[in-house]
């Protein structure tokens, strides 16, 4: 506990804490990384690069919302990356089997693929939630194990080979489509973030998620159906991950079982940087979205500066640990 002596909290815990809780850190980080990148790398503000960032933002923000929901209940979902991969593979398989690449196929295979990815994500999520709620076992362990199982099935099915035969129209519209400079997928992500905010603030389900995460016993006593809320939350998270897989398939032009290998950790990083508490009960969708934007911009800037991907993993790990340490050191007064 000697480390507490050099933490900045005692100087002004309430103000600093307020700033942190209200997303000050995320904003400062975001502005900083944008300013530095724009100054150092002129291509950063290039229109194509901005659109690229918009898409990458979507592919992180949507699963980060999913992670946020689960973390609000006091859990974790380590299987999100695996669900994204399975969503991508199942989307492509459905489209291929319905002959989506034939000119006369129309929109039906695409809708069927979306439905399949949604249903698969929903089912896996509900299973995770059921295991956590029914048996009271650690969400972290449950989802670690299901992630291993899902990845096993996906790689067995694909043997690591991309699945082609997805609809060209699908790639054009969802993968490349945009309104002005804003890609569709970014708009979809923003819409989901808005829905998340509304759900968190304005719906009974949203309040139930907070209640289960803040104090499970109190929630139970006050009539919140804990098991149902948990299952619904994990199912919703799974569905969001399934949709992410579907959208990524449009971008990649094929179903891939090896995408999103580090996604679970990126989403946890986004959630933690966005101020979601690891003990549950504290989360704001808009801050998680800002944090996802920050991570996206940072990754993009490092790519532009030709920083090795291994080094990027290192930076991501350090950013996550830094955010966790900051949360603990600054908010310790409040939580202990």
């Amino acid at each position: 506990m000697s480390v507490t002596t050099d933490n900045p909290a005692p100087a002004g815990p309430s103000r600093l804490e307020g700033f942190l809780v209200n997303g000050g850190v995320v904003l400062v980080l975001l502005v900083l990384v944008v300013a530095v990148s724009a100054a150092v790398e002129p291509r950063f503000l290039n229109k194509l690069n901005l659109m690229n960032m918009g898409r990458n933002f979507a592919f992180l923000a949507i699963p980060a919302l999913a992670q946020m929901l689960v973390m609000t209940t006091g859990g974790f979902d380590l299987s999100l990356g695996a669900v994204v991969a399975s969503g991508s593979v199942v989307s492509a398989l459905v489209m291929r089997s319905m002959g989506a690449d034939l000119p006369e196929a129309g929109v039906a295979p695409v809708l069927a693929a979306l439905a399949a990815a949604l249903a698969l994500g929903l089912a896996i999520g509900a299973f995770n939630g059921w295991l956590v709620a029914r048996f009271n076992i650690s969400a972290f362990m449950v989802t670690l194990a299901t992630a291993s199982a899902i990845v096993g099935v996906v790689l067995f099915q694909t043997q690591g080979i991309p699945i082609y035969g997805v609809s060209e129209g699908f790639i054009d519209l969802i993968g490349r489509g945009r309104i002005g400079p804003v890609p569709y997928v970014a708009l979809i992500a923003l819409a989901l973030v808005a829905l998340g905010i509304v759900m968190q603030r304005g719906t009974r389900f949203g309040r139930h998620i907070y209640a289960v995460g803040s104090d499970a016993r109190a929630a139970l006593l006050s009539g919140v159906p804990r098991a149902k809320v948990l299952i619904a939350t994990y199912a919703l998270a799974g569905a969001l991950a399934g949709v992410t897989g579907f959208l990524m398939t449009a971008r990649l032009g094929s179903g891939q079982g090896t995408i999103a290998e580090t996604l679970a950790m990126q989403t946890i990083a986004a959630a933690v940087i966005g101020g979601v508490s690891l003990r549950g009960g504290v989360a704001r969708a808009e801050l998680v979205a800002l944090a996802a934007l920050f991570l996206t911009v940072m990754a993009n800037a490092m790519n532009l500066m030709r920083i090795d991907s291994k080094f990027q993993t290192l930076v991501l790990g350090l950013v996550l640990l830094g955010a966790l340490a900051l949360e603990r050191l600054v908010l310790r007064e409040k939580t202990e």
Binding site: M1, S2, V3, F76, F140, T262, M265, I268, V272, L278, D308, K310, F311, T313, L314, L316, G317, L318, L320, L321, L324, A325, R328, L329, R332
Partner: peptide, 26 residues
């Protein structure tokens, strides 16, 4: 990370694993 700073062990070692993985491959 876990003892002195008090970070949740799951997430702390998850973060460490990415740092260590990067070091091993670099």
């Amino acid at each position: 990370l876990i003892g002195a700073i008090g970070i949740n062990a799951f997430v702390a070692t998850l973060g460490t694993s990415y740092v260590v993985m990067a070091l091993a491959s670099t």
